[in-house]
Simulated scan of single mutants.
Amino acid sequence: MSSVPVLNPISLGAAVRERRLSAARTQAEVAADAGVSRAWLIRFEDGHPRAELFRVFAVLRALGVSLHLDDDITTDQDREELAFLDQLLGADDER
């Protein structure tokens, strides 16, 4: 399968959901394999901004995918959208 750009929690959750659906797996199946609750997986797929990293990696493993870091290829519009999302999510409060 192809790589997907992940720029924020929402796009990460959407990419995971897309991968889960393309593998024809239910949320319950993936959650059980990852050792997380189905409720947690639902929030994660919806882009919850404070998902615990160890659980994120457990879900990725359960789906047979990994995380790769690439050079930044965001456009000015991407940066504006990211800044807006940061404001909505209160990211500045965490720094």
Rank of each mutant, 00 (worst) to 15 (best):
V36F: 08
E18M: 08
R25F: 06
D46R: 15
A24E: 11
D76N: 11
D78T: 09
R20I: 08
D72H: 05
P9S: 14
R95A: 13
L7C: 03
G90P: 04
P49T: 03
R25I: 04
D92H: 14
F84R: 15
G64P: 06
Q77W: 05
I42P: 00
M1F: 08
R17T: 09
S22G: 08
L7D: 10
T75S: 15
G13F: 04
L21H: 09
R55F: 07
S2N: 14
D93Y: 01
V36S: 06
L63A: 01
L41Q: 05
R79G: 12
T26I: 03
L88M: 12
L60V: 03
L53V: 15
G47D: 07
E94M: 08
I10D: 04
A28H: 08
Q77G: 06
V30T: 11
I10N: 00
E94S: 07
P9E: 07
E29P: 02
Q27H: 02
G64E: 05
E52F: 06
E18I: 05
V36L: 06
L69V: 15
T26Y: 00
S37V: 00
V36T: 12
T75Y: 03
A51F: 09
R25H: 11
D93M: 05
Q77F: 09
A62L: 02
G13I: 10
Q77H: 12
V59C: 06
A31G: 02
A91V: 11
R50C: 00
E81A: 12
A58Q: 09
R19Q: 14
V56D: 01
L82P: 02
A14L: 13
E29I: 04
A23D: 12
D71L: 10
R95L: 13
S3H: 05
V30M: 02
D78K: 07
A83K: 10
W40S: 06
R19P: 01
G13N: 06
A58E: 04
D72A: 09
D70W: 03
D86H: 10
V6H: 01
M1C: 08
M1A: 13
E94W: 10
D71T: 04
T75C: 06
F44P: 00
S3Q: 11
R38S: 09
E94T: 07
V65A: 15
S22Y: 07
D70M: 07
D86W: 03
E45M: 07
L53A: 14
R95M: 08
A14P: 02
A62Y: 02
R20K: 08
L7F: 08
P9Y: 04
R17W: 05
T75P: 05
R50G: 06
A28G: 10
S11C: 03
V65K: 03
Q87I: 03
V4Y: 10
D76Y: 04
S66R: 14
Q27D: 00
L69P: 06
L12T: 13
F44Q: 04
I10Y: 12
D78Q: 07
P9R: 02
H68G: 10
R17K: 15
A28S: 13
R50I: 00
L63G: 06
V16G: 01
S2G: 10
H48F: 15
L88N: 02
A14F: 05
P5E: 12
S3T: 12
A91G: 14
P49C: 08
L63S: 07
W40M: 11
A15D: 02
F44E: 01
E45C: 03
E94G: 00
Q27W: 00
E52H: 13
A14T: 14
N8E: 13
L85V: 10
